[in-house]
Design a protein around this nucleic acid. Structure first.
Lengths: 212, 212
DNA sequence: GGTCTTTTGTGAAATCCGTAACTTTCGACG
DNA sequence: CGTCGAAAGTTACGGATTTCACAAAAGACC
């Protein structure tokens, strides 16, 4: 039954959850896989298949209860609770992340920040003080932190990832433009706008032999 | 032969290109699929297969010429030239994007910015003046712009996407937390740190029945 | 309570993608 | 000039995902 769920499925669940949140706010109380699929550009069959990995949540002939499915998904994903993050790297990018208002409302709170630059140590960034990077591992061992955010320059990134792992972190959001290596029991996701751009350009090479 | 290349393959090419750039900087002149694979956590077979969609670039018994393969990939991807971007939305997020130093060196230049807030119009952001959003479509028809970046709040995002499409844009990088709808001939990529977080939490729910 | 409509849940088929294994080519060396 | 080792190119297989299509369930209406 709950035998090894494909990662692609897990990656789609937050998208479903977000759509359901919006439907709930609009006051919708039920939704069909058809309707949800149109909202998200996904086939209804895929939605039903994905959900079927976890149980039976719909009513035949009716569809899914919006609030019911939403809270089920939130529980499955673990986004029904508060998560504690630490931010490593408080340069321009790191500061933008710290000040980004999108994490808080979703239950992701940055509880500590770290940087190698002595000038930044002690400053307040997004409400929490900046610690020296040397204290990172010790800090992780003495405070609960669930997820690490890496926002340092590429050359420093792998070493930061290693420190996070050594500190017992099992989930990392990496903004640095590198392919970081982590042990099998650590999840890592990459945010890389440049890679996204570079894969789009393939499709818009116009006025070229072979271009669209 | 060059019949319909899978999108996953296209998405990996920029990663290869980045690794090759670094190898080139280190002065390496040849690399085997084995060595490149270890660097990137990809199997050698996958690298060879991916490249074989486009031609034969290696020498048996030796490996790939680093600079040669790099420039081939850059050409295939179209990242061997300058691309002109426009940024829509100059709030906190938009400003961070405009000031982000990562695009320029890769040939992506923001040539114009747009916002709905009258207070921002006329200000300089990252070297280019902010235009009123009403001028977007007209601007696109009278200037060359290859890619649009959407950095507006969720409720406004679809309408901005529509305007970009109406203006003839075929590639969009979307930072807004929505699933945007675009015609089949438009490529769109999403940057969404929250979704990335929310899919990671599934794997780190500890101390739960069923958690790891 | 029976029938009709709708939409789920699901097994099977189809497709897509990755991996492994084999063949070929290249350079080196004797 | 022939043999050997290494690594690319390629084909075939297998596994993973997606799609399809149908049976079963639920409410609505009479």
């Amino acid at each position: 039954m709950s035998l090894e769920i494909p990662e692609v499925v897990i990656n789609r669940l937050p998208v479903y959850a977000r759509a359901l949140t919006e439907l709930a706010q609009r006051g919708e109380s039920v939704v069909s896989s058809q309707a949800l699929g149109e909202l998200l550009d996904v086939t209804p069959a895929q939605i039903r298949k994905d959900l079927s990995y976890f149980g039976r949540f719909g009513k035949q002939g009716r569809g899914y209860n919006v609030n019911g499915l939403l809270s089920t998904l939130r529980e499955i994903l673990g986004i029904d609770r508060q998560w504690r993050l630490c931010l490593v790297g408080v340069g321009r990018l790191g500061q933008a992340i710290a000040e980004y208002g999108g994490f808080g409302p979703q239950g992701f709170e940055i509880v500590a920040a770290f940087d190698a630059n002595p000038e930044l140590i002690g400053q307040e960034i997004g409400g929490s003080p900046v610690h020296p990077i040397e204290d990172l591992e010790r800090y992780l061992h003495s405070h609960r932190v669930d997820i690490g955010i890496v926002a340092v320059p590429a050359p420093a990134a792998q070493s930061v990832v290693d420190k996070l792992v050594a500190g017992g972190i099992h989930a990392i959001l990496n903004y640095a433009p590198i392919t970081a290596h982590v042990p099998r029991d650590v999840v890592i996701r990459h945010i890389d706008p440049v890679l996204a751009m570079q894969s789009m350009t393939f499709y818009i090479k116009r006025g070229e032999p072979g271009g669209k």
